[in-house]
């Protein structure tokens, strides 16, 4: 029953339209090309440095693991940079192009429209990230990382894209102008992720040892800290300075999952006017 509901919601004309139109523009292959170029340049630059390092004498499993961490960090920042741009215009641009009103008079529900828009933009981002897999495969040449770790990191990326995309789609629904929606989404992302990181560093430096739970909780809202806690299981303990039942990345996923659901529900609510809920006076 649930699968049928999801199938109806996810495989629909709006999603098909989004896929088709997105891949017909020149921007999509260009975005894919530049992304791969950037990440490839960074990976090969890293390898070049390693092979020219006489102390280590080239690549080895330890260096390979460092390269994996480094690439994962770079990929994380590229996702943080690209996802708001891809999602923050999906509704407002339809409004600006004056196609939204027509779409809203069809039989497509607000839920279908919002989820399709979110899935299509995230799918493109997933395509980009998965296209970087051949670069990651270099890591396997030299060992040091298990395939399950790669799968785990990629799942984290997908979650991150959805949570960021939910912000983007909410602001895109609320604000009429795409530019304002994009600025607000980037602003929120920078505030949530940048502020938590900087505040954690600040509290860590002024208040060593005291109130360290605060640092741990602040870092639990930061994607980079969540990523590090996935590589290093001692990281959570170090940041909280005590044994915890949950890792930082688990708290991160829990908190942002709730925020993501709230953002999606609000987007669905605000897409169309509140026709049913409002009690109209019969004058």
């Amino acid at each position: 029953m649930m699968m049928l509901y999801l199938k109806q919601k996810l495989i629909n004309p709006v999603l098909e339209k989004e896929f088709r139109l997105r891949l017909r523009t020149i921007r999509s292959p260009l975005a894919l090309m530049f992304y791969l170029f950037a990440i490839g340049l960074i990976a090969f630059g890293f390898m070049y440095m390693m092979f020219n390092d006489y102390y280590y004498g080239g690549m080895n499993p330890e260096r390979s693991r460092e390269m994996f961490y480094f690439l994962s960090g770079v990929q994380l920042f590229l996702i943080l940079f690209m996802t708001p741009g891809l999602t923050a215009g999906v509704i407002s641009s339809e409004r600006e192009k004056q196609t939204l009103n027509i779409l809203l008079t069809t039989q497509q529900s607000s839920t279908t429209i919002i989820l399709s828009k979110l899935f299509s933009s995230i799918s493109f981002m997933i395509l980009i990230v998965f296209a970087t897999l051949p670069i990651y495969s270099i890591v396997f040449l030299f060992g040091g990382i298990s395939p399950s770790q790669v799968v785990f990191i990629f799942l984290f990326y997908i979650f991150l894209m959805f949570s960021l995309g939910a912000f983007g789609i909410l602001f895109s629904t609320i604000f009429k102008k795409t530019m304002i929606a994009i600025i607000t989404t980037y602003g929120t992302t920078i505030f949530l992720y940048g502020f938590t990181g900087l505040a954690a560093i600040f509290f860590e430096s002024i208040n060593r040892g005291v109130g360290s739970n605060l640092v741990g909780f602040l870092l639990s809202l930061n994607p980079l800290a969540a990523l590090i806690s996935m590589y290093d299981s001692n990281f959570t303990e170090q940041m909280f300075r005590s044994q915890k039942d949950f890792q930082i990345w688990e708290i991160f996923v829990f908190v942002y999952f709730i925020i993501m659901i709230i953002c999606i529900l609000l987007s669905i609510r605000f897409l169309r006017p509140a026709l049913k809920k409002k009690k109209l006076k019969q004058s």
Partner: peptide, 29 residues
């Protein structure tokens, strides 16, 4: 919405759709 066909005073179209695809999308919708 099932009963009405609405044409607004100002409207846009999806530029990268062909005419047939445009109608097919709304038909499916």
């Amino acid at each position: 919405r099932k009963l009405i066909g609405y044409m607004p005073d100002f409207f846009g179209v999806y530029d990268h759709f062909k005419t047939v695809e445009y109608l097919d999308f709304y038909g499916a919708s």
